Lab assay of single mutants.
Amino acid sequence: SELMNSSKLIRMLEEDGWRLVRVTGSAHHFKHPKKPGLVTVPHPKKDLPIGTVKSIQKSAGL
C-alpha cells in the first residue's frame, strides 16, 4: 500500500492556503481562511497510510 510523508501532505495543505493554528502532541491542526472546518494531520510521520491521506485531503477539499 502507498504511504505518504506527513511533511509532504502539510506542504500540499499550505499551498492550498491552510495555516497551522494549533499543535496538540503530534496532532497539527490547520484552518483555512475561506474553507470550513479544521483539518488535523499527525506529524511528524514518515508513513501515513494512503487512506488517512485521502481522508485528510477530502476534509481539506483538495
Rank of each mutant, 00 (worst) to 15 (best):
S1R: 06
S1M: 10
S1V: 14
S1C: 14
E2L: 07
E2C: 10
L3D: 11
L3I: 12
M4A: 09
M4E: 06
M4Y: 09
N5W: 06
N5D: 15
N5A: 12
N5P: 15
S6N: 02
K8G: 10
L9A: 04
L9T: 02
I10S: 02
R11N: 12
R11L: 12
R11H: 11
M12W: 08
M12Q: 10
L13R: 00
L13M: 06
L13E: 00
E14W: 10
E14Q: 09
D16A: 07
G17E: 05
G17K: 03
W18G: 00
W18A: 00
W18F: 03
W18P: 00
W18M: 00
W18T: 00
R19V: 13
V21N: 05
V21Q: 06
R22D: 12
R22S: 14
V23C: 08
V23W: 07
T24W: 07
T24I: 11
G25M: 12
G25T: 13
S26C: 12
S26T: 10
S26P: 08
S26G: 08
A27H: 15
A27M: 13
H28E: 04
H28S: 06
H29F: 13
H29A: 09
H29C: 10
H29M: 14
F30N: 00
K31R: 12
K31D: 13
K31S: 10
H32W: 00
H32Y: 01
H32I: 00
H32L: 00
P33L: 08
K34P: 00
K34I: 13
K35Y: 03
K35G: 03
P36I: 07
P36Y: 07
P36C: 10
P36D: 07
G37Y: 04
G37E: 05
L38Y: 13
L38K: 07
L38A: 07
L38F: 10
V39L: 07
V39M: 03
V39S: 01
T40G: 06
T40S: 14
T40D: 05
T40P: 03
T40W: 14
T40V: 12
V41A: 01
V41K: 00
P42F: 04
P42Q: 07
H43W: 05
P44Q: 03
K46L: 15
D47Q: 09
D47M: 10
L48A: 02
P49N: 09
P49I: 03
P49S: 13
P49R: 06
P49Q: 07
I50V: 14
I50D: 15
I50K: 07
I50C: 12
I50Y: 08
G51V: 10
G51A: 14
T52M: 14
T52V: 14
V53S: 04
V53Y: 03
K54R: 13
K54C: 13
K54V: 11
K54N: 07
S55Y: 07
S55M: 12
S55F: 09
I56M: 02
I56C: 02
Q57G: 05
Q57T: 14
K58T: 10
K58A: 13
K58R: 14
K58S: 09
S59A: 15
S59C: 10
S59H: 11
S59D: 11
A60R: 01
A60I: 05
A60D: 02
A60P: 02
G61M: 04
G61W: 03
G61Q: 08
L62E: 03
